[in-house]
Amino acid sequence: MRHAPWLLLLPLLTGCGNTPPEPPLMTGPTRLRPNDTLVLAVWSVDPDGDSLSYRIAWGDGAESDWSRWYSSGDRATFAHAYGDSGVFEAVTRARDHSVESADSDPLIIRVFDYGPNRPTPPRLASDTAVVGANIGAMTSAGHPLGERVSLQVDWGDTLGEWSEFVRAGEHILLRHSYEEPGRHLIRARARDTGDRLSAWSDSTLVTVVMPAPAR
Rank of each mutant, 00 (worst) to 15 (best):
S150N: 11
A168E: 03
G160Y: 07
R187M: 11
I172L: 14
E170R: 11
W162H: 01
S140G: 06
D157I: 03
R148V: 06
L197W: 11
H143R: 12
T193C: 05
S201A: 13
S140W: 15
H171P: 11
S150E: 14
Y178N: 11
L145V: 03
H171Y: 13
R189A: 15
G132A: 02
T158L: 04
E179Q: 13
L185T: 14
D154T: 10
S150R: 10
E180V: 00
M138F: 15
A199K: 15
A141G: 08
W200A: 05
R167F: 11
L173M: 13
L159M: 06
G194V: 05
S201Y: 04
N134H: 10
G194S: 06
Q152L: 09
Q152S: 04
S203A: 13
M138C: 07
G136L: 12
S177M: 12
L173N: 12
V153W: 01
E164T: 14
D195N: 08
R196C: 04
D157G: 02
E179T: 08
R183F: 12
T128F: 08
R148F: 06
W200Q: 03
S198R: 02
W200K: 02
E170V: 05
D202N: 12
H176N: 15
L197D: 06
S140P: 03
N134T: 04
D157W: 02
E161G: 08
P181I: 00
L185E: 08
I135Q: 00
T158W: 00
T128K: 14
I186L: 08
L185W: 09
N134W: 14
T158D: 10
T193V: 08
I135K: 01
A133D: 15
R175K: 13
A141P: 09
D157R: 05
A137E: 14
S198Y: 05
S198D: 08
R196G: 04
A141I: 07
R189N: 07
R191Q: 11
R187E: 09
G142R: 05
S140T: 06
G169A: 04
S177H: 07
W155F: 00
V131R: 01
T158V: 08
H176G: 05
A133E: 14
Y178G: 15
Y178V: 13
G194A: 12
R187H: 06
W200D: 07
R191L: 05
L174D: 06
A141F: 12
S163C: 14
V149H: 13
G182D: 00
V131K: 01
H184Y: 15
L173S: 10
A188R: 09
G160P: 05
W162A: 02
V149T: 10
L145Y: 00
S177A: 13
A188S: 15
G156R: 01
V130L: 01
E164F: 12
P181F: 03
A190N: 06
G146L: 03
R187W: 11
T128D: 06
I135A: 04
E180W: 02
A141Q: 12
R196E: 07
R191A: 08
R189E: 10
R175Y: 13
S203W: 13
S203I: 13
N134Y: 10
W162M: 02
L151E: 00
I172S: 09
T193R: 11
G160H: 11
G156Y: 00
A168T: 03
I172R: 14
A190Q: 03
P181H: 01
H184E: 05
